[in-house]
Amino acid sequence: METKKIFCDITKCVGCRACELACAVEHSATRDLFLAILESPRPKKRIDTQFIEKDVFQSIGCQHCDDPPCVEACMASCIHKDKKTGKVDIDTKRCVACWMCIMACPFAAISRKAATENKALKCDLCPERECPACVDSCPTRALYHEARKDWAKREKNKVLIKK
């Protein structure tokens, strides 16, 4: 099975940061926007909306790489790539906050959970949801949760429609 991850269609992304908000709420204790704001520590997002150039944005998080550098770098061996699903997961309990994963990640997709305890933090593809919160929340439907070959197919078809 090929890894399912989150893809962003840059032509559709307007940089509204709805994905960031949905991500933080999904990873909060209360899972409610208005209560999450009051939580301490504030829940943290694991996806980042980035400005590329004028009017062009993207939303990017962990790429669950085919050959993940973070897995090799983790000296506590607490990051693993699931052989079946291809998902890259951090076992937070074993994380010692050495930041070797941050050192190695080509996409800056891992952050430090600074508020209470120091642990590496990244996209976990919302294990309790069928579809990750960011994908569900995107108002322009720019985000997709799928395998690379399906994404490529979609892109190909889009070009055909354009023509």
């Binding site: 962003c8 990017i60 085919d66 080509p106 690379r148 490529a152 892109e155 889009k158």
Partner: peptide, 15 residues
């Protein structure tokens, strides 16, 4: 060289 770079780039190229 990483395929993930091309994933991130594919729709940008089509703009």
């Amino acid at each position: 060289t990483r395929p993930e770079y091309q994933d991130a780039n594919s729709t940008y190229t089509s703009i």
